[in-house]
């Protein structure tokens, strides 16, 4: 990929471009977690469902490692964004 790809949005939730991912790697990031901590890529409502693979690919390309050897970022619950109003009602039906 050329430098002109730098404006491509990789993480749609947090508006992170491929250029920002490349800059984080150039600044020394070698893992998915480090890139997430620096750029916020993968921290938005979809929690990295779209950008995770794209970032792993870029990291593999830049570090010369196979994608399978790129250390993945931690996947955290909830699996889907849930309102606090719904969470507050957990267990209420059971109690009735």
């Amino acid at each position: 990929m050329s430098r002109t790809d730098d404006d491509i949005i990789v993480c749609r939730c947090e508006d992170v471009t491929l250029g920002e991912i490349r800059r984080a790697i150039a600044e020394g990031a070698t893992t998915m977690d480090e890139i997430r901590r620096i750029t916020r890529a993968g921290m938005g409502p979809c929690q990295g469902r779209t950008c995770r693979q794209l970032i792993a690919l870029e990291l593999a390309r830049k570090t010369g490692k196979p994608v399978a050897e790129v250390l993945p970022s931690t996947i955290r619950p909830p699996m889907k964004a849930v309102t606090m109003g719904s969470l507050a009602k957990i267990g209420e039906e059971d109690a009735e």
Binding site: M43, G44, P45, Q47, R76, P77, P78, A81, V82, T83, M84, G85, L87, A88, I90
Partner: peptide, 20 residues
């Protein structure tokens, strides 16, 4: 957390949790 905070700050009931 949701029960306590939606009592103190009721507007948060419509805000979604993305990560814990």
């Amino acid at each position: 957390m949701s029960r306590i905070i939606t009592r103190l700050l009721p507007a948060l009931k419509d805000v979604r949790v993305v990560r814990q």
